[in-house]
Computed example of a mutant assay.
Amino acid sequence: MTSAFDRRLHPVRPDLASSSYQGRVQAQRFVDGNPMRVCRDMLDLRPQPNPEAGIDTQALFGETFTVFETTVEGWAFGQLGTDGYVGWVSDEGLTSWAQPTHRVRALRSYRYPPADLRFPPLGLVSMGSLVTVTGTTTTRDLEYALLDDGSAMVAKHLVPLDHVEADWVRVAEEFLGTPYLWAGRSSLGLDCSALVQMAAQAGGLAVLRDSDMQATDAGDLLEDWQLASLERGDLVFWKGHVAIVQGENRILHANGHTMTVASEPLDAAVVRIAANEYGKITVCRRL
């Protein structure tokens, strides 16, 4: 009965399931989750509690991770609040939950021990990370946001949680040159679907994590698309890949060909990808 649920999106196993699934699945036990938050700059999420297992995605600083089980080896099984992704993380990367107030808008920004850029930073957090601001202070004419964990960040690098960018594709364009990283989900390295997800989030659009999920769920399906009819912000999918339309005959994507976030002509990319990578375009969608 549990096999019908995608293990990436449903905290359901034969031996354990979230209490919210009681009556819908069979499991040895049902548990209430304990909401925690990520306290590392990035936290790898894996399909098994094994450091040698591949990485599915990454959780960002301050994001909620609801824990359903912990092991004596230091692993936590749970679900990421931002996009519902399920898996295992190191429990050393989690701390008690607090309501976030702001989101990191800069590509990346440092957290400082006091509110002073001359001090060695505590960490480097990516766009999309969440923080709880308790106050502000100014040091040498630069305003800092004071966080609930005692650290401080440059205030102009943050936006309120309800802030929405008018052009989410412009946010994606800020990632140009960022290294490609399979399963990466930060401005230090990310994959094709993470680029879509993170930029869309800045535009107030909730998008699932993996490209196959996006291909069936993101926005609206374009039934009779032609390359020439695609508009800025449309998504072009291949089996295992996604790109963002920038404008007429131009796409932006994190890709293994350049190993970066790159912009290139759509028609040339279609030919190359069909010949060497993912085959033909499978679907196009509009956010």
Rank of each mutant, 00 (worst) to 15 (best):
A166S: 15
A166V: 11
P160R: 01
V164T: 15
G87A: 08
T82E: 10
F61S: 09
D116N: 13
M153Y: 00
W97E: 03
A172S: 04
F119K: 09
G128K: 05
D83W: 05
L122C: 11
D116E: 14
L142G: 02
A172I: 05
M127C: 08
L117F: 05
F77P: 00
Q79G: 06
W88Y: 15
D141K: 10
A76Y: 10
T132D: 09
P179E: 05
E73T: 15
L117C: 05
A106M: 00
G78P: 08
G93E: 14
W75I: 13
L146F: 01
E73F: 11
R111M: 14
V125I: 15
R140W: 11
H157A: 14
L130C: 11
A166Y: 00
D149R: 06
V67G: 04
A166L: 12
G177A: 03
Q79L: 10
G78S: 09
K156A: 13
V67D: 07
L117V: 02
T178M: 07
F77L: 13
E92M: 05
G78K: 10
D116V: 00
P160E: 02
E92L: 09
L158Q: 05
W168H: 14
A59P: 08
D91L: 11
G128D: 14
W75E: 07
M127P: 00
R170F: 04
H157M: 10
E143T: 07
S151E: 02
M153V: 13
W97D: 08
M127R: 15
F68H: 15
F68K: 05
D116I: 01
F61C: 12
L80T: 05
V169M: 01
T66V: 08
S129H: 07
T82W: 03
T139H: 14
S151N: 01
P114R: 14
D91N: 15
S109R: 01
F77H: 13
R140E: 15
L60I: 06
D149W: 06
E69K: 14
H102Q: 04
E165N: 01
W97Y: 13
L158N: 03
R111G: 04
V104Y: 01
D141M: 13
F68V: 02
E173F: 05
L130Y: 11
Q58V: 11
F119C: 10
L94C: 06
G78Q: 12
V131E: 08
F175G: 06
G93N: 11
R118N: 14
L122Y: 01
S96T: 09
A76L: 15
P120I: 12
W168D: 12
S90N: 08
T71N: 03
D141A: 15
L158W: 00
A145K: 06
H163Y: 14
V89L: 09
T64Y: 01
S129E: 07
